[in-house]
Design a protein around this nucleic acid. Sequence first.
RNA 1: GCUCCCAUCGUCUAGCGGUCUAGGACGUGGCCCUCUCAAGGCCAAGACACGGGUUCGAGUCCCGUUGGGAGCGCCA
Length: 469
Amino acid sequence: MPSVRTRFAPSPTGFLHVGSARTALFNWAFARRHAGQLVLRIEDTDRERSTRESEAALIEGLEWLGIDWDEGPHRQSERGGDHAEAIEALLSKGRAYRCRCTPDEIEERRLAAIATGAKWTYDGRCRDLDLGTDCGPHTVRLRLPERGALTWNDLVFGESGQDAREIGDKIIRRSDGQPLYNLAVVVDDLAMGITHVIRGADHHANTPLQIAIYRALEREPPQFAHVPLIVGPGGKKLSKRRDPVSVQSYREEGYLPEATCNWLARLGWSHGDQEVFSREEIAALFDLGSVHRSSAQADPAKLQWLNQHYIKALPRDALVAQLLPFLEATAQRKLKPTPELEQLVDLLRDRSKTLADMARLARFLVVDEIAYDDRAARKHLKRQIERPLADLHDRLSALEDWSEAALESAFDEVRARHDDLPVGKLAQPVRVAITGTDVSPGIFETLAVLGKRRTVSRLAEAIHFLRHG
RNA sequence: GCUCCCAUCGUCUAGCGGUCUAGGACGUGGCCCUCUCAAGGCCAAGACACGGGUUCGAGUCCCGUUGGGAGCGCCA
């Protein structure tokens, strides 16, 4: 068995959360870095909330990010036998005991304890009753030592731990016979030979109990590394309503997986001053020692910058392929790559933070009818431009050579005939006429891409618009 | 409330007792370029939360305060 086995163990109760995605990325990178393996385990023991749909979404998210795993997906729900066996073993060795206290009784005693100022841990009422299977509805609790440090050396947080007495005897099996999370993870991590548990810092406080379970099972705990949480604006917890929390939402907004990975990797981890990391570099350079201990705020602006960086670097074919779905959505029809589209995409790289941006800017090329943006039309399609525009229309209709250079000289001629009209004064109205907006790549490049037929007809439409509104 | 954790520019971070008049990146502002928008180039503003120690010397070590976070489930 390889010396390193990590695991990613999400619960399938929604989409792939950015925090989970980063945990997955770190597990993946750590495994790859050490020539180890990554195991995928779906923690679906909460039957109420787990669905196959979200399991599929989880997997789709991982695949999109380019995070591959070596084993699984295992499902925790299919491992009930192991869990039950472990609990029986603990019971028979006296490391666990049956407890028939009901939730109501416990709540009552808890409140009473807190009222006197004491702090509450389970009071051990059933601890030494030696209850058998015939004791009626009951849970099973782990018998913790009276005291004793439950410590570990966290690969991110350093020496960590808590005393057993702070925790109290915790339930490891529900009265319906189902094992609890903390028991199940330990049994599964053991069964799967996990050597390094890399997970969100929200589990840091669970770890002492898990250490206690490992000891009760008389097994060595793995190494633990807790990675800080990703938080939203103002350092507040990410909110589903306010913040984009799923990687799917980033995908839908037109972020590239490379950019998303890079962004996630730099949230809580760094490698000197380096900002740009390919997936391969992440896998080659990732180390837990450089993971920060404080939580990180997700900064969308930095993701945008990274995304544009990767858009600029992506080979043309790949970029067109990635763009197509976004373009089809905005054009409302099926599309195929064309030489014109490929040219335009190259012109748009420097102007797009996301694929959605790029689709918006490329729309004029793939739709038959453009609509004028109100503000742009009011500003640039004014009465006094009618004559120069009409002149340009006629000049371009007669143009044989539809090259950027030829277009530029045509513009120059027309401008000269109209009191040396400045380039911008002509370019902006033309831009609105052919794209509907006052934003596009250079005007000659744009016209060259659009082609003669459509340029001429859109100019005619603009002139009509100027004359008749 | 209790337990635990964290704390460098607005944000992500470098820093692992002297090399720090604290470095980089994003973002922001200005200038250049310019037919629009970008991209690009140049420049700038911007941080060691606070208070005590330890030390010849502290962003770096210790303690407290403040501020944030996590956990305290028959959820995962």
